[in-house]
């Protein structure tokens, strides 16, 4: 009986991963029309369960989270998304990352008002993403 109760208690934890909704948030101060495209690209990708996109000046930073079982082919997902997004925005400098650090930081930047701060932070993140050791 005790074991049964334990098993029943554990079931919800195994099912947490099953909600299929994708969370995509976009921050764009200059042009609201641009949002649609990047949101669509992220939502159409089957390998990604969440994503943030930030437009600032002529740059676009996209931070996504790959589905847990697809973690091993992160760089491939990044490459694919980057290609698709670059097609939609040929005159923007696009940066795509599937790193959790970038996702976490962009989540905070979505609420940031000061554009100068956002821009600075973006540069910092890009530098951080290149670091390998």
């Amino acid at each position: 009986m005790k074991k049964m109760a334990l098993a029943l208690f554990c079931i919800p934890f195994f099912l947490f991963g099953c909600s299929g909704e994708q969370l995509v948030e976009v921050k764009n101060t200059a042009n609201a029309e641009q949002n649609q495209n990047v949101e669509e690209v992220i939502k159409n990708s089957n390998d990604v369960y969440a994503g943030n996109a930030i437009f600032i000046d002529d740059q676009l930073l996209v931070a996504v989270q790959a589905k847990p079982w697809l973690d091993y082919k992160k760089s491939k997902i990044e490459k694919n998304l980057k290609k698709q997004i670059e097609e939609k925005y040929p005159n923007l400098e696009v940066f795509v990352s599937a790193d959790y650090k970038l996702y976490w930081e962009t989540q905070k930047l979505l609420e940031e008002e000061d554009e100068k701060k956002v821009s600075d932070e973006l540069e910092k993140l890009k530098k951080l993403a290149k670091e390998e050791t």
Partner: peptide, 17 residues
């Protein structure tokens, strides 16, 4: 790992050390 990612400047590639 998540502690270092969230509170310090480590990415998923660098947080292993």
């Amino acid at each position: 790992t998540y502690f270092y990612i969230i509170f310090f400047d480590f990415t998923e590639t660098t947080v292993g050390n």
